[in-house]
Every structure is written in C-alpha cells, then in structure tokens.
Design a binder for these strands. Structure first.
Length: 807
DNA sequence: GTAGGGTTAG
C-alpha cells in the first residue's frame, strides 16, 4: 500500500486542471464504500461469514475479483485514477490485462509519466508487458518527449519479438516523430513488412511533427500511388502541414480531396481546414467554413477566435467570444484565454489582459505553462517586466518558449543585462536554445556592445545546429556592426547563402550607422540586382543612412521612390529620417512645417530630431518648442534635458541651465553617467570623465598631456562648458580635456598594436570638443580611431571624420 | 476483455 500511496501523492501533484477537471470529487481520500461493490448477479450484497466450504470460498473470491474488476473499469472510465489504483492494489494482478487497463487509464487522462512508471512497476513485479502494453507506453514516451524511455521500451519490445506487430510499429513511428527523430520513424516504417493505413498516417503526422510539411504531403501522394486510400486522419495531418508553412494552394487541393472523399462534415477536418485558411491569411475562407459547421464545439470556436487574433483582428476576436457565450452557451477554456491575450496587446487593452489573468486564475486554469507564457508576453508587451518576471519566477513548469518569452520581454523593455543573464542561466538548463532564442538574444549583445561577449555568442552559434539560419546570421551581422567591427559584419553577410530582404536591410543599416552612406546606397543597388524586393525596413535603413551621411538629395529621392515605385507608405521612422535630413540642411522652417503636415502623430523621436537640428543651428526658440513637446510625451526624457541645458550653456544663459537642472531633479531623471569603453583581449576597460581609477592612469594622463600640448591652443579655444554651474566653481572638473572618450582613446592608443584601429564605445553622444580633438589625434598619431557613440560610429582618419562633422 | 494515427494554444 505504501507504494500505492506514494503514487497517489504523485498523481495528485502532477494532475493538471485540464486532465482531471470535473472528474474528481473534492474529497481526496478514496471512499471505502466505493470499492465494496454490489455483485450484479446477486440480489443482496455479499456477506463474509466465518465458516465456508472450499467451493464457496473460491466462488466468494471469484465474485470479489469480478467486483473489483468492475470497480476498476468504472473508475478508469470515469477518469478517477486514484480510486482505480486503490482498487488495483486490492486485486491480484499477475495478468498483463489488468496492468494494461491501468496504464491505458493513465495515458487517457494525460498522466503519461504515471503510465510509464506503472509499466516499470509491472516489469519489476514480474509481469511481462505484451503487444497491447507497448503501444500505450510508447505513446506515453512520445507525449512526455522522453527519448531515453522510448528507446529503452523499443529495445525491450524488440527483444520480445514484438517489433513485427503493426500496432506497435505505428506507435513507434508516431513516437519518433514527436521526439523529432524522423529518421528513426522512417527506419521503422521501411522495415515493416505489412503497412496499413495507420502506419502511413503515423509517418505523415511524424513529418508534420518535425516541421517537414513537404515530406508529409509527398507521403500522402505516395500512399495513394500504392492504392492506399487516405482517411480523415490523413487529411487532418496534411492540412496541418499546409497550415504550418502557409501552403494555401496545397491546402485548397486537400480541401478538394476532403470534399471528394466525403469528409467535409467531420468536425475535426472542418476545424483543421478553418485553421489552415486563417493561418494562410484567408480569414474570409475560414469564416465561410465556420458558418458551414453546424455543431460548433469549443475547439471550432477557439480556432475561429485564434484566426481573428492571428490576422490582427482583435475586435472580431472578442465579438466571436461573445457569440460563443451567447449563441452556443459555451464557456471559454484555457485555450480561449491563450488566444485572446495577444488581442489585448493588439488593442492596447491592458486591463482586459489583466481581467483574463484574473478569470483564468479563478477558473483554476493556472498553473498552465502555455497560459503563463502568454501572460509573460502580455506583461512584457505592456512594459511591465516586473509582472512578467513574477509569473516566470512562480512557474512550476517552463518550456523553451517560456524562456524565450521572458528573454524577449527583457529585451523589449531595454533590460539587456537581465536578458543576457537569463540566457546564461538557460544555457545550463537541459533545454537547447532555438532560432527564436538566438534571434532575440543576439541583439542584446549588440546593445551592450561588448565585442568580447559578442564573439562568445558567435562561438556558441558556430557550434549550434541552426547556425546557417538566416535570422541568426542577420542578427550576427548587426551585432558586429553595432560592436564596431563593420568588416566582420560584412564578412558574415557575404557568407550568407540565401540572403533575404532582412539580410540586405541589416547590412545597409550596418553601413548606415558607420556613416558610410555611399556604400549603403551601392548595397541597395546590388540588392535590386539580386531581385530582392525592398520593404518598409529597407527604406528605414536607406533613409537613416542618408540622414547620417548628409546625403540630402538622395534621401529625398528614396522618400519619393518608396511611395511611387514600391507603393510603401512612409511610417514614423521614415518621417524621422526626413526630419533629420531637413535639420542637417538647416532648413528649420521646413522641418517645422513638415511635422505639422505629417499624417501621423509626432512622437518624442520626431520632436527630438527637431531639437537636435535647432541645437546644431543655435535656434533656442525652436529648441524650446521641441523640448516642450517632448516633455509632454516623455516627462523624464533625460537626453532632452541634457541637450537643452547644453544649448543654454553654449549661449551662456546660466540661469536657464540651473532651471533645467532643477526640473531634472524634480522629475527624478538623472543625467546618464557618460562612460567610454575600450576592449582589450582579456578585459573591458571603462572610463568616466576625469577618471583616475585605471591601473595605467598615470601613463594615460601623461600621454594625453603630450597629445593635448601637441594639439596646441585649439582645444582650449573650443572649450565650451557643458552643464557648468552658475558659479563656475567646478570649471576644472567640467573641462572637456579629460572627458572619458579621450582617456579611452589614449588607453586604446597605448594598448593596441600600431597600425590597428583604436575602437572606443561610448554610451552618450560625443561632444564637439572631443570630436575636434580626436580628429587631430588621428592626424598626429596616424592611427585610425573609431568612436561609436549612442547613435553613430565616427571613423577618424587623417584629421577627418566619416560623419562630416554633423551628428 | 485491453493496442497504433487526428482538430484549437505560448
């Protein structure tokens, strides 16, 4: 009994609401009277007397066994597995039949691990598993994605000579498909002497499970060539294959077959078709099918709701939910909730999302790995990483998708450091990162811009099986560009065998942020020569490039061309770039009217562009107007305060400088501590302004002193005080001579090989003084110096900078 | 007396 009780606890803990909801009473202890059953053949219940003859003793035992067997069946049929096991323990169970019943009971109730445990217990109690045990156990191994268990069971059944059984083999094919080992599935299939319809269907669904839609469709054709007539199972699996890869044409062909074979009234076939059409973007077809379904169960409704959500029609999704409740009197289930959460994001309806969370909680849908993951996404999308973090932390079961969701939540909310830490934690878990993980984490490396770490992730990716995935390679291209190694970025781009539009957009943007506008434009021509059609993002990259490199006319050409030649309506990013172009050309009036005439509501980024232009052209009035708009949208925009304050300082309006500073204090926005980084092979060296903490500080200051003296008077003439207090008492401290970027450049010069460029990364924009000084340093030292600030890379060479002195 | 393949979800 001890064994049985330990099992009870296990079952109880691992039961998900979906498995046993509504099937169990709240009383956790099995009731005695539920197992002392009435003998159906007798008019009275049995009474156990003291003295009995041998014959009557046997008949009593037989009757008892019969009663227990009936009780066992009844508990299994009603899903009461705890009670079933309780009865099982009271029975003689030397026969595989009883064991098979219980194992099947577990599997049917979704308790697959328990099914596997019971199979092991069966072996340890000396009862041999038979050809009816294995299909269930194998199915359980597939469902729990347990390769080791599956392989062991396969070995065992092979030894027992059960590998020639068609049912056993079909279950093996299906299991290997679910485990992602399609080659094993195929081997089992090929070695089968007799293949029936189920074997074919198992292989078809195996291909679907591993995402190989085309092979599953080929399989459907192959079986027909061999005169094997497909059934509804074959249809459902191949329809799913079409959904997965949005193969609308094949989907329609299978729809025709469905009609020809007369499966069109099968609700599961109908649901699969509905789902296929919505996944292929044809909500209209999905709706038509939906109307034709006479008996709509919750799965049909969920598929329709999911279709609306997937096609970004959140209002219709909610309307569909109401119809489901009113017309068919159906209550939403956990899948309905999961489906609806993204539509809350689409609608910007945070409170509705929270209500769904509350409803799910009240209904006992939680814990549920998929729902919790969807909630993590929801909170992440609404800028609530703390709430997402809480859900993630409390989760009892986490899948790779859960981890991916939390990582991207951090990234979406600018928490790159946390994302990277979580990724490192994932690496030590028994989960293997997939393309989504990699595609989301690599940009985080780009943001922290540490080449050393970026190279580590590159090393990891090189060993990883999906390393030729274009998403991954695109993200690596951008990572290297952002970390300052444009050449490496280009090398990786050149090695991508199937460059998609994103690959081109990425490389164009890479050249853009390095200020190489002409190269960006050339790459665009090359992209067109390769018959790759530009999209919305292509023009963001191109216009960014034109604005950074000051290619005003070319920029305007692209702006008109995207509308006329490519029918792409400009979005807010494009307008931002055009404003940068106008600002750069000093056309402030036109910039102002451009904002007014824009068909989209101006964002802080748009006003920020006007602010930068006003600052660069010393138009305080316009800068104030822009700042006012920015503060209305983002009251704590630190960059805006700093820029405005610098502008006042340049105009020597010290009272205004103080006013801005106190405003900053009031809003609680702290000035970002500017720092500059230089990476050597084994270390990241971080400098702040006037830093003396570095080991080689004396040397750095000594060299910098020499360089500054060499630069002569120019630096002091350019000395424009930033953020200087009214009293000027910290005049020395605010001097740009020892700004972090100069210290970093200096350290770079003495710590890298002559001939190699010096790479410095900076978290704020470079100031005019330092820009001028580094130009001269590059000339005097004959070294190439690359400084990546918070927006662009400045390539200093021979006294010039790639930005053309405008940033 | 009990087996194998199937619909909606992150």
């Amino acid at each position: 009994m001890a064994v049985a009780l330990s099992h009870y606890n296990y079952y109880h803990n691992s039961v998900t609401p979906r498995n046993l909801s509504g099937k169990r009473s709240s009383d956790s202890k099995p009731k005695e009277d539920s197992i002392v059953v009435v003998n159906p053949g007798a008019s009275k219940p049995f009474r156990f007397g003291r003295k009995k003859s041998k014959t009557s003793q046997r008949s009593v035992e037989q009757a008892r066994d019969l009663s227990l067997m009936q009780a066992l069946r009844s508990h299994i049929d009603s899903g009461h597995m705890r009670d079933a096991v309780y009865v099982f323990e009271k029975m003689k169970h030397s026969d595989a039949y009883v064991w098979n019943l219980v194992i099947r009971g577990f599997a049917e109730n979704g308790l697959f691990w328990e099914a596997i445990d019971f199979y092991h217990r069966m072996g340890s109690e000396g009862v041999r598993a038979d050809k009816l045990t294995y299909p269930i156990v194998i199915k359980a191994c597939g469902a729990t994605v347990s390769f080791d268990e599956g392989e062991k069971a396969h070995g065992k059944l092979f030894k027992l000579g059960l590998d020639s059984d068609v049912c056993v083999c079909s279950s093996l094919i299906s299991m290997y498909g679910k485990l992602g080992c399609i080659e094993y599935a195929l081997k089992v299939f090929e070695e089968m002497t007799v293949k029936d319809l189920v074997s074919w269907n198992s292989l078809i669904s195996g291909y679907v499970a591993v995402g190989d839609s085309r092979s599953s469709l080929m399989c459907l054709l192959d079986m027909q060539v061999l005169r094997m007539k497909p059934d509804r199972f074959s249809m459902i699996s191949t329809i799913n294959a079409c959904s997965m890869e949005r193969l609308l044409r094949s989907g329609k062909e299978i729809h025709c077959q469905v009609l020809k074979c007369g499966f069109e009234l099968d609700v599961m076939v109908q649901t699969s078709l509905l789902d296929m059409y919505s996944k292929c973007g044809r909500v209209d077809y999905a709706e038509r099918l939906f109307c034709e379904i006479s008996l709509r169960n919750i799965v049909v409704w969920n598929a329709m709701i999911g279709g609306y959500v997937l096609n970004s029609r959140p209002l219709e999704a909610f309307a569909c939910l109401r119809r489901m409740q009113e017309a068919d009197n159906l209550n939403p289930d956990v899948i309905t909730m999961i489906n609806l959460l993204p539509s809350c994001t689409q609608l910007g309806a945070f409170l509705d999302g929270k209500s769904i969370h509350g409803y799910a909680s009240r209904k006992g849908f939680l814990p549920h790995v998929v729902l919790e993951t969807a909630l993590t996404d929801l909170y992440g999308a609404f800028g609530e990483p703390k709430l997402a973090e809480y859900i993630f932390g409390e989760m009892t079961e986490k899948s790779l998708i859960t981890w991916n969701s939390m990582i991207s939540t951090y990234i979406q909310n600018g928490r790159n450091k946390e994302a990277l830490e979580l990724f490192q934690e994932l690496l030590i878990k028994p989960l293997i990162p997939d393309a989504t993980t990699i595609a989301s984490i690599v940009p985080a490396y780009s943001e922290v811009a540490l080449l050393r770490e970026g190279k580590q992730i590159h090393g990891y990716i090189s060993k990883w099986e999906h390393n030729q995935n274009s998403y991954t390679l695109n993200s690596l291209v951008y990572m290297y560009a952002k970390c300052g190694e444009l050449d490496t970025a280009r090398e990786i781009f050149d090695r991508i065998s199937d460059r998609d539009v994103s690959s081109w957009n990425t490389i164009i943007m890479s050249y853009a942020i390095h200020g190489f506008g002409r190269e960006s434009v050339e790459l665009f021509s090359e992209m067109r020569d390769n018959d790759v059609k530009p999209n919305y993002s292509t023009f963001v990259s191109l216009l960014t490039s034109c604005s950074i490199s000051g290619m005003v006319d070319v920029g305007w050409e692209f702006y008109y061309s995207m509308k006329i030649d490519y029918e792409i309506d400009p979005g807010i990013e494009h307008y931002g770039c055009i404003l940068d172009l106008l600002g750069r050309a000093g056309d402030l009036d036109r910039a102002k009217s451009f904002i007014k005439e824009m068909p989209l509501a101006p964002t802080a980024r748009i006003w920020g562009s006007l602010l930068t232009a006003s600052r660069n052209h010393r138009n305080i009035e316009l800068a104030e107007l822009a700042a006012e708009h920015i503060f209305r949208l983002e009251h704590d925009n630190t960059g805006c305060y700093v820029l405005l304050s610098n502008l006042y300082a340049e105009a020597e309006r010290w009272a205004d400088v103080e006013r801005v500073k106190s405003l900053m204090k009031q809003t609680g926005s702290d000035k970002t501590v500017g720092c500059s980084l230089v990476e050597t092979e084994c270390k990241v060296h971080r400098f702040v302004n006037h830093d003396r903490s570095h080991d080689q500080s004396n040397m750095i200051y000594h060299v910098l002193g020499i360089l500054l003296r060499k630069l002569g008077e120019e630096t002091s003439v350019h000395r424009i005080t930033k953020f200087r207090p009214l009293e000027l008492k910290n005049k020395r401290a605010s001097s740009p001579d020892y700004h972090s970027v100069r210290l970093a450049v200096c350290f770079g010069l003495i710590s890298t090989k002559v001939g190699n460029p010096v790479l410095v990364r900076k978290n704020t924009r470079i100031c005019k003084d330092c820009h001028g000084a580094i130009k001269k340093i590059s000339e005097r030292t004959k070294r190439e110096i690359v400084v990546g600030d918070s927006k662009v890379f400045h390539h200093f060479r021979d006294g010039n900078c790639s930005c053309g002195d405008y940033w």
